[in-house]
Nucleic acid binder design. Sequence first.
RNA 1: GCCGGAGUGGCGGAACAGGCAGACGCGCACGACUCAAAAUCGUGUACCUUCGGGUAUGUGGGUUCGAUUCCCACCUUCGGCACCA
Length: 818
Amino acid sequence: MMDPTAIPTYRPEDIEPKWQARWEADKLYQPERDPNKSKFYALTMLPYPSGDLHIGHWYAMTPSDARARFKRMQGYNVFFPIGFDAFGLPAENAAIKHNIHPKKWTYANIEHMRGQLRSMGNSFDWRSEIISSDPKYYRWTQWFFEQFYKHGLAYQKMSPVDFCPNCNTTLAREQVHGEDRHCERCGTPVIRKDLKQWFFKTSDYAEELLNYEGLDWPEFIKTLQQNWIGKSQGASITFKTEAGDPIEVFTTRPDTLWGATFMVLSPEHPLVENVTTSAQLDEVRAYQDQAKRQSDIQRESATREKTGVFTGGYAINPASGEHIPIWIADYVLMGYGTGAVMAVPAHDQRDFEFARQFNLPIKVVIHPNGVNLIDPDEMTAAVEAHGSMVNSGPLTGTPESESMAAAFRFAEENEFGFGTTSYRLHDWLISRQRYWGAPIPMIYCPTCGTVPVPEDQLPVLLPDDVEWLPTGESPLKLHPTWRFTTCPNCGGPAERETDTMDTFMCSSWYHLRYLSPDFSEGPFDPAQYNYWMPVDTYTGGSEHATMHLIYTRFFHKAARDCGITSGDEPMLQLRNQGMVLGEDGEKMSKSRGNVVNPDDLVARYGADTVRAYIIFFCRWELGGPWSSTGIEGNSRWLRRVWYMLLEPAEGSAEPEVLRALRRKAHQTLKRVSYDFENFEFNTIVSSLMELLNEMGRAKNAGAFGSEEWNEATDIYLRMLAPVCPHIAEELWQRLGKPYSIHTQAWPQVDEEAAKDEMITLIVQVNGKLRDRILVEPGIGDEEAKQLALASDAVQQTLEGRPIRKVIVVPGRLVNIVV
RNA sequence: GCCGGAGUGGCGGAACAGGCAGACGCGCACGACUCAAAAUCGUGUACCUUCGGGUAUGUGGGUUCGAUUCCCACCUUCGGCACCA
């Protein structure tokens, strides 16, 4: 072979920064709106500027980038932007810990991460970068709030909210985790606090959010969202207290109405005040107090025994006329349904446990088919199955098939209830008693009431000079002057809202701001919107299934109803990646010491190798453990590619060798194209490795320099370009091809060349492999059968046994059944 | 408890519509090169075997000529939800 010193060494540390700078200078990834070109909006979830780019960011973004590059080579006008979700708690936590201003901390992190992101060699359009904490961004976050307010989608209410005593902030119910109800961010158990808060009417959209028509989203994400929205059909039934106050309940089982032997109110229910007798008052008050500190109590009791207190009051069952006691218990939640339930202990397990705990009467009113009529005294569990109605006044004897309909009709006819639908999804609480967020642009005037800041005065700027140490109050409230202003209506003295907005609000519309980050007439340039929206492919972690991905869908629909956006959905196709685990197979964390640092890997192997390994080592949607030896294989591969293409060889190859090379090249192209389209990234790299192995064999057989060799290298580099953009560009240039490989067309598969010359016919006896016969692809069924029967191995296995049946799968397999 | 993924060699994984299980890579073993090592290249590598073959895709059943793939039950594991009336 030739002297290896004659060709340059593969040095990623030289070629990678060189090409990155060139691509950026040439604006290679800055698409212009072009109605003659098909657009492709590829979006990856924007990172939070936590300080360091994690290997998880690489894992999320690299395949997304590779696919965006693939689409670009296919001829699409591809837009692949990036930005920073820059508001949020970690900045304030860091500020408190290191005594650094949240703004300074955030922007320093962004500066650092920009460099790290560039080192990945992604085809980001940096021109479109947004930072959600920039006034020119949050001006429009505030503007959206005002549009929602003006259209009745934003409202204020007093509400018992979860409060984290550590972060000193209110948490949305969705942000409270675990059995001990701890804070999502810091893990501290939460307490309850009553505050006046801003909400968005997400629940108005519950039904529409269940519709995924036209969306290519993973089934499991849709299922998670459907469970989250939690639609249930049932009836609204109005009971009355003995004093005549109505108590509305929701039930999915109106057919069990005659079995309601008591009622349970949530401890926070407003009617508790009215129904509680003076004798029970102290006990009720004590229970209410205890319910407020639910987190502590729950932690102390390992067993989930039912607790509750009798109010002393009675309600009247509207069906039976019976007077039934009213209790309060923490298992009834104010946040779901009406905060009151009719308790049917015979047919609901929770009510059953409660009744047994407190010796309340149990009345059987449903008789399921094939079960002996149950004696309440002997029951050990509730009977939740449907059945015919018993002990149910005029409806006694109604069969199972009609029981629900009969119950609805009875309630409607007697005017105490009607059929209705209840959703678990509740309105989105967006108020945060924090500093580092977009201020809610509202003014409270003693004369005019709640007044939005006029649109031409937006943004309401976040002041820099604040005390951000947590006091339990919003830092903006403690600022000496900030909150004092004048009413835009009457000009009199007024006060600003001092809460800021949930950061999920910022991330609900960032994909719109990317389109025109400097546009000042509105949140986005409508011309850009009409061309680029909706997002064609959205990629990110499935942990956002129920929060971000529901909020952003809601946001789009709400904006549509305000006349701002068009179309029903913002993102057509969604794909979710799994998680990179540490080498020990555990979740990466500093405390475990299993964190993989991408910067070190880039310094050691180069970005292309890291990209290749990220794509290769597991199925993208599943994730898997990192391996520090595994990456060596991808490093070797790229070095082999380098020398395979650059190192000359002599000789000339036989025609069969050249045909085989061409065949493998086109077969690989077919496979790689399919895999890119279908997010099957790991086999893209395997296929490229296989083709390289074939090229190695062909080169040894003298194929170097032939027409087929040159075609194979051309196809090879084009296929490599999306995965390893730098080495592909460098080799492309060294082979004398025109800059840039990333603007070249994706090659066409030559189906004729990709066809196999010979195929392996599988011969089975009773489904067991007995022989393999090389045959022509177009072999007829009868011929295949005869060949199989003539096989020595088959004859030996048959031992003269009679053949019952022969199954021939054309061009693939013959199975002889004896 | 409910919902949703996933269980394939020593390891990560492949098998695109029910038809060759283990592609590709890591690791390991042997060989070449070298004074030697690294790097690189080559060969081999599921298990058992009396060398005929037999057994293998978490476990047990089922459907089928044929199952990693479809159905049922169970086990393990990861993620989400948490008394939802």
